[in-house]
Design a protein around this nucleic acid. Structure first.
Lengths: 237, 237
DNA sequence: ATTTTTTTCGACGTTTTATCGGAAATATTG
DNA sequence: CAATATTTCCGATAAAACGTCGAAAAAAAT
């Protein structure tokens, strides 16, 4: 039971003893980012909070963050504007907190799905395909995250930044692992390789979110991921 | 004919007679996008317009579009808010018109620089390196364009969209040309290859704009471009 | 010099954001 | 259960940003 022992260890020391530990640690941190919102006492509040998040996602995805109005979000959530301000201190605050929970869900789903895989390449393939699929399945979230928040300068000032960093860090780690295990040739700049992979897949996702091209995102992202991983694996040292 | 690769961009004019013509036509259209702003009579106006654009670029790059205030931009430009509204009907209008002139300048610089090159691969290498260098040299513009406007859903509703389409269309065309001339293996989805190239380079540019990493963008972008082009050229059919 | 056109700006109305004090709902205590 | 305390919600209203308009100033034309 790796999860439990991991949790125990991470309380004690920051430095994992083994590679497997480090990988577990990475996934663990990604799935346990602290929630920014202060805990509410009543159940009613949790419902309200959820209504706000649902409404905000719909409105932001429909109108874009800048054109969305707080009043519209509140109305959509069935509460008054001033109540919304009890939960989020500004529109920006809401927009940049909103994607967190989905992101954590994605990491959790990946963590479960990756359990069987052993090779770094398989793990990478799964990770990138799943990220595209997740954007397709949660297209409203995808629009918000990929088209408005991730590239934004503002993200670097928010808590969400940590999750975004986790996102890239996992790719980076897996490439390193692949090199260590001889699946990928050494002698290449790992950051560069990561940019290549992440950039290519994100480009496909973004194009899909904007134009719904290619028609079949799942197939297209699996294809490009496979292709790039092949290229990387077959590169001359 | 790879009709699929044409799908994402809409070619509007009649088909030129030869390849060389088509290439010239592509560059010509990119450098002659009509200006949206109505022509002003007095020189004073042109100066004012320029002051607005300079001020807006500074303010947008510093605060981000959403946090920027029209009043701040007007003050920075040394004019009153109401005068600004004589030139642009809203903040959004200004933000999405602003990057056009720089983009046209980029296409012009590329057009001049590419004149000597003959192989499609050389042209691609130059194009992508120059795009990174241009972002580095005009970092404020780069922040606005790459981090706020390009990925935005809103861009698809603006005139700027045409220039953005040109940007991708050129990569697409050069890959096609490379395949036709036997520099790149056939049998690959051109659109996919373009995503790969553009995604990788943009990822590097965006990371540099956000974190100033890698330190030397010129070197890094040349390196990753070279690497990806090699990969593509050496791919098995 | 006078008239016409273009450009600028201050004054002001509108929309959106944000705050605050108290009412309503829920939880706690005796 | 009643009284009290806490939490949540909302109407009224302040503050800030957006956007309009008519008239003054500047430039051009006659």
């Amino acid at each position: 039971m790796p999860t439990q022992s991991r949790a125990a260890v991470s309380l004690q020391s920051a430095l994992p003893a083994t590679d497997a530990d480090e990988w577990e640690d990475l996934l663990h941190r990604a799935t346990t980012r602290p929630k920014r919102a202060p805990d509410r006492k009543q159940d009613r509040s949790k419902r309200t909070e959820q209504q706000i998040l649902n409404a905000a996602l719909r409105v932001f995805a429909r109108d874009g963050i800048s054109r969305s109005r707080i009043a519209d979000i509140a109305a959509e959530a069935g509460i008054s504007t001033s109540t919304l301000y009890e939960y989020y201190k500004s529109k920006e605050d809401l927009a940049y907190d909103l994607p967190t929970s989905h992101l954590v869900t994605f990491f959790e789903e990946y963590r479960t799905a990756v359990a069987g895989r052993t090779s770094a390449r398989d793990k990478l393939q799964l990770y990138l395909s799943m990220s595209a699929d997740f954007a397709r399945e949660h297209a409203e979230w995808g629009r918000l995250f990929y088209l408005e928040i991730w590239p934004s300068v503002l993200v670097s000032e928010t808590e969400l930044r940590h999750s975004v960093d986790d996102f890239a860090r996992i790719v980076l780690y897996l490439i390193d692992e692949g090199v260590r295990q001889g699946e990928f040739p050494a002698g290449r700049n790992t950051y560069e390789t990561a940019s290549l992979l992440l950039g290519a897949v994100n480009q496909v996702i973004i194009t899909w979110l904007l134009y719904r091209r290619p028609r079949n995102l799942t197939k297209a992202s699996a294809e490009i991921t496979e292709r790039v991983l092949n290229m990387i694996a077959n590169e001359k040292d």
